[in-house]
Design a binder for these strands. Sequence first.
RNA 1: GUGAUUGUAGCUCAGUUGGUUAGAGCGCCUGGUUGUGGUCCAGGAGGCCGCGGGUUCGAAUCCCGUCUUUCACCCCA
Length: 413
Amino acid sequence: MASNDFQPLQGMSDISAPNIYIWRMIEEKARAIFTCYGYEELRTPVLEKLSVFQRSIGDATDVVKKEMYSFKPSKHEIAMRPEGTAGTIRHLAGQGEEGLNARVFYIAPMFRYERPQAGRKRQFHQIGVEATGVPNPLADAECIALQKHLLDEWGLSGSRIQISTRGEPSDRKPVADGLRSALQPHLDDLCDDCQRRIDENVLRVIDCKNPSCGKIVDQIPSAIEFMSEESRNYLDQVIQALEGMGIEVEVDPKLVRGLDYYVHTVWEITHGALGAQNAIAGGGRYEIALGKKGVPGVGFAMGMERVITSLEACGITADQFAPEGGIWLISLGADALTENMKLCRELRAKGIRCGMDLEAKSMKAQMRKANRVGAEKVIIRGEDELANGTVVIKDMNEGSQNTVSLEDIIRDA
RNA sequence: GUGAUUGUAGCUCAGUUGGUUAGAGCGCCUGGUUGUGGUCCAGGAGGCCGCGGGUUCGAAUCCCGUCUUUCACCCCA
């Protein structure tokens, strides 16, 4: 394509055939599995009041601070959702008691104004769930089990589940203080970014990618060790429940989830096929304050684009899910054209995939077309067939053909 | 926001130190005697060389800007 005029906005893309087939496979299988687990679909608006995101995701997070598409068309400042949890909880919080014990899923586009990169678009798609209810390690474990079930059903192999905990809000200060004092002796050896992070957000030091910082972090106690016994027990119970279900996870205290609403269990699923953004999914337990209510829940979001990239690395590609077969009708002469329109309509009414050229073309051209669209069979009708009430039906794979009556075709189709 | 990188037919890409009508493969269309596809043969259509400036007798090629692609940082799915 030579011109930019036909391109979508930066970081956004059209999803068309054949790629769309893998999207549909993912969505269809996901919906079926969600139904098995008792989840209902929820579709919230793309636009919400800005405050919905500020309150739940956190004012200070990058997502809210610099990555949102927001504007003020009237009284309220509004924004396009950068993730699905905030809107979902906004909905559930308005449902009274029922909303506090609900299971919903969504499959929807999200928007973040960032520089595009491997596995990162400005419009991307998430498939996620939220299960509200009082904190319960078994709920967290079930949520991870559900996610694993999805990956297995899609056919994804080679993913890793890493789990950690953020503890309770009351753990945050002891953790931050503990880490700071543990890092203090190594201050000079930390990278410039970490020198800054140690005051601003000490947890970020923990997952610094700089190797020399990593070495220091390995020497000091993990964040989990500064947490209360209750918090550590909670994580242990989640892990035990997962083990009981035969699901392998790696405990990684370095795992940091940036969104403010997380408490207790957090996890991430990564895949080696991805680039620097190697997480195909993230999840965790949260407590989101809305009005006077604090809505507790657990949920996850999977990046569909990243799932697809990973699936492709496993040899699972869109063309495997393309529709195939079907019948191509060939018309010789104007009368055959109109008669085939009728026949097409009858076949389609029976759910049969069929098609035909809508203009008079040579037989050769029509046969070529039949071949190109991958038709399993062709039906040929010309003057003779119309006169006799028959059609010629040809098997494109065998190359064999015979003449049958029109009624038989319609009945047996 | 920072730093790299890309842009030539529908697709994948050539295009020599600036020099006449910008090429290939694949795809597409039409034929290869009456109404038969995939293979083969022949022919054909299709390019503001991303866009806008500049340098030059002359720019796809050099310079500047801009948009876009890809990748990394930051952060996240």
